[in-house]
Design a protein around this nucleic acid. Structure first.
Lengths: 339, 339
DNA sequence: ACTGCCTGCTAAATCCATTTAGCAAGTTCG
DNA sequence: CGAACTTGCTAAATGGATTTAGCAGGCAGT
């Protein structure tokens, strides 16, 4: 319709059509407040821009202003953990709402690739960087321009005080409360962690808080676990083995508190194998709200990791003026049928 | 160590330190072939660049050359389907290998957001666009600059002949071959699709091919399904119901060919409920290699969707000089223990 | 009539890398 | 010796938007 020529429409074109200088056009289109340009000029420029379908050249804009409306999302693993998924989706949605865009980078956890990713991001003059850690740890960051905004997502860093984390402490409590509310008191087994075996040894900051929350709630109710079984990996297979052992050795166990859904998945299999039923004989609660949690029969009641909310929060935080603070996102309970 | 000043190092700085013009520095650093600059000049420029830690300003570069080493990955849904995960990971890896970076955009399937996403990508002068469709369909694309490279990932479009798809036809065959090789002939049930009920109605191009492959292989062996049960959604719950029905009505069924892993997941539960065992009484094969496939006991043998490979291929294709063609990625068999 | 102050706008500098046109010195050839 | 190249390099234009400095005209005040 409008400009049939193949060339890009530039600000100069708009200005020409409006009969003004490009300086005027720029000021008007960027909506500067203190300008002294006439209402008539505003009208003409906007009209010309619309007519030509003008879209500013972001490269030129970035060159001049150092702003790109682009946020780098640097994670150590994307698909390895299903966790990243929700984080990304939330971040994507929030970015879109704010008229920004997400540059996705993956480091695989290696410090060299971390440096590469950061440099790639900085080269593109991103407005900020979100570091999404699948396991909380210190990340090595080469000297960043002091102005670069950084948010730690699902992890913390002494260098960057702005972070978004799940509220695991409360989440841990919640799981216990669920069981207690259902009448469980002495027959609760903890699957995945053992206070003694793992003393002082935490796989990650967030899991540490989850466990702390669990113990705090147990203490408050004056309860102790009937058993605590630990393992290093939290996959279905381990949940299966641990639960089999628990059921064999402690026949009076009536509830399993599994530290994640995949352990619970294995637990279901072991409970079925032992000829017992969920939740008739054994109640199960877990954490994360993994995809599998909904597939199990009966559905697994679980304390969810609010990935999507966390992703959203990280972008919003990045774009906010805040400069420090640990933002805890509540972990919602997904009630199904396993208690 | 080097430049302690807070300002960015520019090409001019490098040139100055090397005692040459920035034109010379540019030619040398971009590795132009036909230049007549001396070996000594090359040495000095490289040395200066290294010493200052020079990194070209990509915004300036983009402005001049219209290349950003950035690829837009536009998908309709990211996290809704677990499929996107592998696609993204593969694309990310391939992009990284090629020194490119991925701009992630999501449209949620709406044409308006599709336009928005494309414009956001074009504004950033991406070198190309990958459209990842979770279900194959025509996408609406506003006029793109003719030069923009586009690859369709997991979908096709009449407008863009360059596409990457799983080789579902062969994949479908493979699943049948697996069962036949294990001695199954007459007791095979197809779970998820019914030739008659869904005649001409295909949920997506790729699934259509999967089914075509299955029927082709059955025909070749002169076999027919004992039953075909269909349903519109392929979730565990449906697999459970369909399988329960099949086992009740056709006691001589010895093998289930499930159109995806989640159906198979439900099938396992129904088989267990019926007091039969996998693979002792019933063999099961499925498709996709979903995460759950490995969690099941016994492990589910499945014909995998090569998501990661597809993601890689899409980026490589985008950066290749090819201009058209449907690239089929083989679907590998993941042999576990369900046959 | 002259200084001073708005008002409404523009020229030109700037951000930084790339690329074209072309200069100066040296070499080759007739 | 002069014309014709070659070699090794540089000045300046370019891409497109933003921003600073400042111009011209109108008006008020004295």
């Amino acid at each position: 319709m409008a400009g049939l020529s193949k060339k890009r429409v530039t600000l100069a074109d708009v200005a020409r059509l409006a009969g003004l200088s490009s300086a005027a056009a720029s000021m008007i289109l960027t909506g500067r407040p203190d300008t002294r340009l006439s209402a008539e000029a505003h009208r003409r420029v906007h009209e010309a821009a619309a007519q030509l379908g003008y879209r500013p050249n972001l490269a030129a804009q970035a060159l001049r202003t150092d702003k790109t409306r682009t946020i780098a999302f640097i994670s150590d693993y994307v698909a390895t953990t299903r966790y990243a998924n929700g984080l990304i989706r939330g971040a994507l949605a929030a970015a879109q709402e704010a008229g920004h865009v997400l540059l996705l980078l993956e480091t695989g956890g290696g410090p060299d690739r971390e440096v590469q990713a950061i440099e790639a991001a900085l080269d593109r003059q991103v407005d900020g960087i979100i570091f999404a850690a699948m396991r909380a740890r210190e990340i090595f960051v080469p000297t960043l321009p002091a102005a670069t905004r950084v948010v730690m997502l699902n992890g913390t860093s002494s260098r960057f005080p702005l972070s978004v984390l799940p509220d695991e402490l409360t989440g841990g409590r919640t799981a216990v409360e669920l069981l207690v509310a259902a009448g469980h008191r002495d027959g609760i087994a903890l699957v995945g962690h053992n206070k003694v075996a793992e003393q002082g040894l935490f796989r990650s900051e967030t899991v540490a808080r989850r466990i702390a929350g669990i113990h705090a709630a147990m203490d408050e109710h004056g309860l102790d676990f009937a058993v605590e079984e630990s393992c290093w990996e939290w996959e279905p297979q381990h949940g299966f083995e641990l639960t089999r052992k628990i059921l064999a050795q402690q026949p009076d166990v009536t509830a399993l508190l599994c530290l994640n859904d995949r352990l619970a998945f294995g637990a279901y299999q072991a409970v079925a194998e032992a000829g017992r039923s969920v939740p008739g004989d054994i109640s199960i609660v877990a954490f994360d709200n993994d995809e599998v949690a909904g597939y199990l029969r009966p559905g697994l009641t679980t304390v969810a990791l609010p990935h999507e909310e966390m992703g959203r929060a990280s972008v919003r935080l990045l774009l906010s003026p805040d400069t420090s603070g640990e933002h805890l996102i509540p972990m919602p309970v997904i009630v199904r049928a396993s208690i």
